[in-house]
């Protein structure tokens, strides 16, 4: 069982991530995207964007690309130490405040907000909230992730 008192309220260190054009193009290819706006900066500009726009779920990938040194789900020393063979993604939510584009640099901070169990502990749920701020410290997006641990 996860130690609720130890982990709930843990806030990660701020992680600086770059929204890389090459990775956005790779993501577009891997998800079967066909709109040239997601592959070609010129097409993006022609459509009124300053650069290739970040797809809405890529926020999750930014998190995965920069595991926190403090409070990461899988880190056995400084995080929750969840076994990768026992995880399921339970829920995912996003709120957007301003658009994010290739070339942007964001600072992301993750808080472990809640841990609860169901079925007598056979399933545990870890709720983590992440904020994405731009260089000017403006909140661009928020994400909420619920990770399920299968203990049964």
């Amino acid at each position: 069982m996860l130690d609720r008192d130890k982990h709930v309220g843990t806030v990660s260190e701020p992680r600086i991530v770059d929204v890389e054009k090459g990775f956005l193009k790779f993501f577009a290819k891997a998800t079967g995207e066909t709109d040239p706006v997601y592959f070609d900066a010129d097409a993006a500009r022609a459509a009124g964007h300053p650069a290739i726009p970040m797809p809405p779920t890529y926020l999750f990938s930014l998190q995965m690309s920069a595991p926190a040194k403090r409070g990461d789900a899988f880190d056995k020393v400084n995080g929750l130490g969840i076994d990768m063979g026992k995880v399921l993604h339970g829920e995912q939510g996003f709120t957007y405040h301003r658009p994010i584009y290739a070339g942007d640099r964001l600072t992301i901070t993750t808080t472990t907000s809640d841990i609860y169990a169901k079925r007598g502990g056979a399933l545990e749920f870890v709720v983590q909230d992440t904020r994405f701020e731009n260089d000017a410290g403006v909140l661009c997006a928020e994400a909420r992730q619920v990770t399920v641990v299968r203990n049964g």
Partner: peptide, 13 residues
């Protein structure tokens, strides 16, 4: 395989 690489989600499941 492509999505794992592109999305940075390397969970081996």
């Amino acid at each position: 395989a492509l999505f794992a690489g592109a999305s940075h989600d390397h969970v081996p499941l």
